[in-house]
């Protein structure tokens, strides 16, 4: 497969316009998980986990400082 055909196939897959054979091909590729096994230590794993969770937490905390604008239907229901 060439990069150009893969680009077209993934584009069609994302927009929901791919034919069943293309869809099956991409889904099969996504389902192949046991081909590459990376051996990393428990400490490295913890570091990666902490890094991702810290980034997520930073977003969560910052989002709580910025008040979200409530939708109109919530304002009306709160009024009643």
């Amino acid at each position: 497969m060439t990069t150009e055909s893969l680009r077209k196939k993934t584009g069609r897959y994302l927009s929901g316009q791919s034919v069943p054979a293309e869809k099956r091909q991409i889904q099969n590729w996504l389902s192949c998980t046991n081909d590459k096994k990376t051996e990393i230590s428990e400490k490295e794993r913890e570091l990666i986990e902490n890094e991702i969770v810290a980034q997520i937490n930073a977003y969560v905390v910052s989002s709580q400082f910025v008040p979200r604008q409530e939708p109109w239907w919530k304002k009306i229901t709160a009024f009643f």
Binding site: M1, Q25, Q27, N28, W29, S31, C32, N34, D35
Partner: peptide, 9 residues
């Protein structure tokens, strides 16, 4: 995306 690789799924 080789056929042999996709067969693993």
């Amino acid at each position: 995306f080789n056929v042999a690789e996709l067969q693993k799924a």
